[in-house]
Amino acid sequence: MCLAVPMKLVEKKGEEGVVELAGVRRKIRLDLVDNVRVGDYLIVHAGFAIEKLNLKEAKKTLKLFQEIPAPGQK
């Protein structure tokens, strides 16, 4: 039930915003997040953005998947 997906903020008016994922748009509330801008990716749950996606950390995690250690190494 804690399912939440990253969606891109495409409109913002006060504490309300519109997010988009794969062409689908949805109205959400922005009460729970600070300093968000159009273009940010937000984690959306039950009609609210619960957090802003951190792009730097997102890339770092992907890079960690790629770092394949040589056989025998941990």
Partner: peptide
């Protein structure tokens, strides 16, 4: 924290406050 793209060590302060 593996899920660092969404989770800050202190969490979401605004949400916690509410």
């Amino acid at each position: 924290i593996q899920y660092s793209r969404c989770v800050q060590p202190a969490g979401n302060l605004r949400a916690r406050h509410l």
